[in-house]
């Protein structure tokens, strides 16, 4: 039986809803500078979120994943709040939509689609699409 001391209370919220709320043993976050891991007892920390896969695990379920894009997180006193712009569970991902988004972003970035596209946004869209595809293909 684990005591509360070696768990982190994790809350993942998006503008639309609360996606996840539970105590977990570790958390891996796509942070500003790349992936970061958090264990219980971490110092207070605030950072922004990139695009990637958030992994966390409880003793019962060692691998819980979310595809995450943009936002912020804060950890203090073994409580982590993730404010994600977009967050999805793998089973909620629409793989066909992600494929279409990837094709569209690639066409825009390579200049195949004529038009005055915002390249920064196209790049971000490509990263999101690839992230979703990767996560749903790994099957978790």
């Amino acid at each position: 039986m684990t005591s509360m001391q070696d768990l982190i209370k994790l809350v993942i919220v998006t503008p639309q809803m609360t996606l996840f709320q539970d105590a977990v043993a570790f958390i891996q976050v796509p942070a500003y500078d790349g992936y970061m891991g958090f264990l219980p007892g971490h110092a207070p920390f605030v950072s922004t979120l990139g695009t990637g896969i958030l992994k966390c695990g409880s003793r019962d379920d060692p691998q819980i994943c979310f595809s995450i894009s943009g936002g912020y997180f804060e950890i203090h006193d073994d409580e982590m709040i993730v404010l994600a712009d977009v967050a999805e569970r793998p089973e909620a991902i629409d793989i066909e939509r992600a494929e279409r988004a990837r094709e569209r972003a690639i066409r825009r970035l390579t200049g195949e689609d004529a038009g005055n596209w915002d390249l920064e946004r196209a790049r971000a869209a490509l990263a999101r699409a690839l992230n979703r595809i990767r996560m749903s293909q790994n099957g978790h």
Binding site: A31, P44, V46
Partner: peptide, 9 residues
């Protein structure tokens, strides 16, 4: 209590 926060960036 916020003084000992680590910010990145």
């Amino acid at each position: 209590h916020c003084l000992d926060y680590i910010f990145d960036p």
